[in-house]
Design a protein around this nucleic acid. Structure first.
Lengths: 210, 210
DNA sequence: AAATGTGAAGTTGTTCACAGCT
DNA sequence: AGCTGTGAACAACTTCACATTT
């Protein structure tokens, strides 16, 4: 017997909700108030029925004969994704990629704030006067606990990735955005998203070969 | 009537082939010569049957009762993905992220070489003596044609993304790794892979909420 | 005995077709 | 008339179960 759970949403639907949100934000900044599933789906690169099906997982938001209210739908999605409030994140590994992500404006615009960075070498890449503090790995646990951070961006070399992941999990991190080429093994309650740039290029490469 | 085509391989299979290849490379550098589907699948984070099914798309490579030859399987996959030869790539947009990717060692290790970078401002971020030349956008067509590049990494702001994509397509680029938050519209024969860091974080954020 | 290769079954995700509002 | 919401059909992908090979 199942007890009442909030219905399980397909991960792909969640991904597309983020895409829809960006399209809606652009529509809104262009002063558009109402949008049809056809127009919004077009902007997001999906079929209209897919968009409507995705939305039904969360309720009914449209007006038949008219379409969707841009502002209302934006609000629904950002509530859903938790983007309405600023979310703290930590970053581990202040190498090339880590440094780039620290200077990347995109995160803040989308509701994420990198509150602290960590590296084995505290003085690494500190050339520019950056506001994000860089700590040694020994302070990891303390900072995470005190700031209540739940997500980490992992930009350490593959050789260090699993070890750092273990430390993160131990300190209560529940989500890891993993840029290292290593496959992490973590407990079930921890979620890992892998972003592997070399694999993405390899994939492109395959499909171009034909 | 269909004329004989090479069988269409599921995109997800191709993605996993890249993952398998990395696992095999690690096994090989550890001196391991033979691996079972169970062990390799474990390292790649998939089920053994999935691995075996993936491989059957390309042929039979294992020995029953024994497993797979690590070197042979590595070779098969890198031939397949086109990673056996060095692939030239161009990068457009030498901002924070673009600069980071230019300094990122990972690509070369995986068989990709960024042969040239482009930006509206040629002198941007040229502080360190980097070997990759940075050109103005006016040289885009010429460099692409002369170097025979087929893939581009796009790290320009969203506002410029579509315009640059159009130029790339016009110059014969067939694959784009798009880091900008913009959804690109391109002809059917051009393949776009989106890597949107904010969306990945948003996704994590949703699944942590429960 | 051990492990692969694969048809069949199962599961998940997408699209269709149309009923139902406004 | 126009456009959403949704059950049903369809397609894609994953897992199972087991025959097959070394």
């Amino acid at each position: 017997m199942k007890n009442s759970v909030r219905p399980v949403i397909p991960p792909k639907t969640i991904y597309r909700m983020s895409v829809y949100l960006r399209c809606l934000q652009r529509l809104r900044s262009n002063g558009i108030q109402t949008v049809s599933s056809e127009a919004l789906a077009g902007a997001a690169g999906v079929k209209p029925t897919q968009l409507r099906k995705d939305l039904t997982h969360f309720g009914q938001f449209g007006t038949r004969g008219l379409g969707y209210d841009v502002a209302q739908l934006s609000k629904m999605i950002s509530d859903l994704l938790g983007t309405n409030r600023l979310q703290p994140v930590v970053l581990i590994g202040v190498g090339h990629l880590g440094t780039a992500l620290l200077s990347y404006r995109g995160f803040e615009e989308e509701g994420f704030e990198i509150v602290a960075a960590f590296d084995v070498d505290v003085d690494r890449h500190r050339d520019k006067a950056k506001k994000t503090p860089v700590f040694g790995m020994d302070r990891l646990g303390r900072v995470i606990r005190e700031s209540g951070v739940r997500m980490a961006i992992l930009t350490v070399p593959a050789s260090a990735a699993q070890e750092v992941a273990n430390a993160l999990v131990e300190q209560g991190i529940a989500g890891i955005l993993n840029f290292s080429p290593a496959m992490l093994s973590v407990p079930d309650h921890v979620m890992v998203k892998n972003v592997n740039l070399a694999i993405e290029l390899e994939n492109l490469s395959y499909f171009l070969q034909q």
